[in-house]
Amino acid sequence: MTVSVSLEKITCTFAAKGGGSYTAVKDVDLSVADGEFVSVVGPTGCGKSTLLNVAAGLLKPSSGVTRIFGETLAGVNRRAGYMFQSEALMPWRSALANVTAGLEFRGEDWTAARAKGEDWLARVGLAGFGDRYPHQLSGGMRKRVSLAQMLILDPQILLMDEPFSALDVQTRSLMENELLELWSADRKSVIFITHDLEEAISLSDRVVVLSAGPATHPIGEYAIDLPRPRDVSEIRLTPAFIALHDKIWHAMKSEVLKGYQQTRNRTSA
């Protein structure tokens, strides 16, 4: 089994406002096998995005090593695609131009890139929307464009930071199913960050639970042995899913409460 992403003893410390320092994540070990779908769940503000940025090479950890397919990562991770939580499309580019942006950066031929872009737009269900600008699309459609923008470059690793958290429930489960379908076509490694345990279980092969911050670290790992292909809205009703949910939720509950308590203290202080 090849390991695609391996975070070893990652610690990230930031200078806090008004002096002092804040350790967001401490001594985190996390490895993802090639083709594995791993979800990382944890209470809000626990440093999940920090870990993802380290894996992407956008953030240099204070200490620790990131290895991508065995090689130590320095600079931006060129083998990974990143899907952001907030709006990341270039507003001055049409949907098609956004999807083909990565190909353009690589210097690929315009006509070939355009054909590929049209193809990807069709694959995410946006055929005929290529000339729309981001503000002319709905939130769900913009996420589809982001998905196509990432997948067109055929990255070996997908890093996803709560990509569907801003969507309504219906659109969200639709997008989750589509993601699973696209992913199962050629299994890439996925690190999927979410605070939604149900989303994590229904999508993943493995769920990693993080402790509340500061100094976040993994406190448990759970293999999800539910059969694939899955339908995310149907699988949530099966007994196996509910049993897993119960088990992981029990482990998570105290951390969530801790995180909540800390946020409350911080705001009242």
Binding site: V76, R78, F105
Partner: peptide
């Protein structure tokens, strides 16, 4: 948007 463009290469 900047990070996204960076990740796109």
């Amino acid at each position: 948007v900047l990070n996204n463009a960076t990740m796109l290469g």
